[in-house]
Write a protein that binds this DNA or RNA. Structure first.
Lengths: 223, 223, 223, 223
DNA sequence: GCCTAACCGAGACGGTACGTCACGTCTTTGG
DNA sequence: CCAAAGACGTGACGTACCGTCTCGGTTAGGC
């Protein structure tokens, strides 16, 4: 249950830090980036999203709420969507672990339940906005898939693959299609029906993706 | 395979109509709505969406391309998203029938395949844009769900329910969750992975939602 | 004190009525112009001007208040300014007579006082609006000068000329410049200072334009 | 002939200024107002007024001609009329001095002639438009009177008052009414007859407002 | 202990599109 | 043929944000 997925620190890059060899430590002169401003901007964006919605969320508003200049936002992020993306990925990195107990069905159920549990009101608004922006701005769409969707797919794919190797996956499914079904249900409820994402859905998905034998006695049904 | 789902003719309504009985012939005075302009706007919106993308699609641009005034767009639609919504629903109404051959598994597979076939490049752009806008503008979201998502859910729900009544549905699923899984896969591929929606996916979904016995001999595998 | 100045009946012309001889009664076919609509429009325009001001006075508003269609306004007048112009000229024609008592100084004073008296709140708003529109729309400016300013100049010019012939006019003035001074004061107060136009101003103008001898003993002071 | 009337520098004010004492040097942060844009807008407005007339003069057109954004116009002026007002007042401030030679009649004549000389084609169009707008938009009317009409009245009033104190003013006139007559003639010719404003009119007004003795020998008729 | 570089707040800049308003015209139905 | 009703193409409005470009004023090395 340990290895948390590591992701890029920030969309902006331009990191000073060098690699292991001592050759490159450019350590530029000048004032350092204000961590205070960075956090204030992430917080302001998240709060404002909840208050006014994504459509009326503006970079000007974020900067004003954060008490910074507009340029400070644009210096580090391409736009409002990337600010939210950083806020969300930071949150996801903290809360969703990749379990490995040996019980592949239970691991899958646990991971899905944790994923769904992380998709609660402060975050769901951001997720819906990000997926929307990804459709509208292709360049952001690439960053969004790269930073958020792919890592999540890989995490779930790892678990599904373990089950498949153990012969527990339903025969008509590949790892990729199983992941499609699971995240499909997640996103469809987020975007389309807005029904809640609860533990029942995690259980239902686990039983649908795996063979009956993998789940019937192994965990839920018992005896 | 007959009953095509009927939906609202237009966002505007206000038809003069009058049934066979002589009671209602309101026939207002004044110039009639220009059908020519209406079609020109729908066409222009669809074309421009393909050419410049949703972000750079503007009401001004639609009106200019259609050779109409901006006000004529705003008179009949709340914004660019609703124009696209009308264009898409008209398309969906024409192309997706609700089959009823008695073979519930085959009907389901046919319906899904037809649904996926309708989601091809001219239309996919619009669908992705509409789902995006639905996240961003809550009021449009309601209209979108009402006019597009719900009717599609009901259509698929009807087929799934027939299978469920015949005892073919996988036991852990309800009609609603089965529909969630099918449309979840559809939308997730549209929005997230952008993988193609092909007949294989229709087959895979049918086999995953229904019991093995319903599909193994009934249609694909055959005796 | 009799001869009221005759002016054009309407800016639109196209009158059917024939002269006294029976030869010309062209009596065109079709529905006749509605006198009811015409008066309703003139009344509505005057009322609305007082209520919302000239800037927010619109042809649509006039038609709506008058209970007519917009086209009925445009059929008979070029725009809102001409509607007001007709309303004002009708009013002026009724109330300002051209006196001729033999006492030229008194006639002048009487005429100016009557002119000023006619320029009271319901009418001043219209006059100011018309003069404004005349500056902005050159074509209307021509009609405005033709229909309103010139006839008024001619009326006053007649009186001044009588005084000049009698040797009462101040020697440095011509008829034209005397009229300029009188109407200049009138319009400047209307447009610029918005001070009241009272009998004192009529008296002051009379004494300034005429020789002292013409007014000191001749009429007011009296011997 | 020295003291030119000082008026507000700009509609915007908000000068950093600071008197000689070190207490007040507010020097706000942020980018400074672009003097280049300000002049380009004033020039563009004046040029376009001459080319297309006030009715077809638009803020959009001014901004386009000036090479600025529309918002930059609206940031500093309420509308097109105020742009013209600033252009005109700057012009008036430069060209009309207040003479004081001791010969009150000559001073009056000189001032009027200078005023009339400043009212030539580039400027007359603007003056007529401004007076028109002042009738149509009451709020602008207040600004117009405040910044243009009142200062001009005060300047002329000062000269007239000197003449009155010296006993040269025609007895029936007050300072205010004398000013009314002079500016009345000016504006009436501008707006109504559009006759030229020449030196003859300056002479005529001087002789009409002052006693014959003040002008007969003093300047024109002369020895 | 400067110098130089980079970041910070603030806010004006040139733009684009918004959604609204009114214009003056055109097209209906009906007197 | 006129009148009401009302949709049409048009064009400007004033606003909101966009993303960029100055400003004066901090912070930090490096020399």
């Amino acid at each position: 249950m340990l290895p948390v997925i590591e992701q890029a620190e920030s969309a902006a890059g331009r990191t000073s830090a060098g690699a292991s060899d001592g050759t490159s430590t450019p350590v530029r002169p000048g004032r350092r980036r204000s961590e205070e401003s960075r956090l204030a901007i992430l917080t302001a964006a998240t709060e404002l999203l909840g208050e006014v919605g994504y459509a009326r969320l503006t970079v000007e508003g974020i900067a004003a709420r954060a008490g910074t200049g507009k340029q400070t936002v644009y210096r580090w992020w391409p736009g409002k969507a990337d600010v939210l993306l950083e806020a969300v990925t930071a949150h996801a990195r903290q809360h969703i672990a990749l379990p490995d107990t040996g019980d592949h069905a239970a691991d899958l159920r646990t991971f899905l339940a944790a994923t769904f549990a992380a998709a609660t009101p402060p975050t769901t608004d951001a997720l819906r906005a990000l997926m929307a922006e990804a459709q509208i701005d292709p360049a952001f769409g690439d960053r969004f898939r790269e930073t958020l969707l792919h890592p999540r797919r890989e995490a779930l794919g790892t678990l599904v693959d373990r089950a498949r190797t153990a012969g527990l996956l339903a025969p008509q499914l590949t790892t990729a299609t199983a992941v499609d079904l699971a995240f499909g249900a997640l996103w469809y409820r987020l975007l389309g029906t807005r029904d809640p994402l609860d533990d029942d859905l995690a259980e239902l998905l686990t039983r649908t993706l795996l063979l009956p034998s993998a789940t019937s006695s192994g965990s839920a049904d018992g005896a």
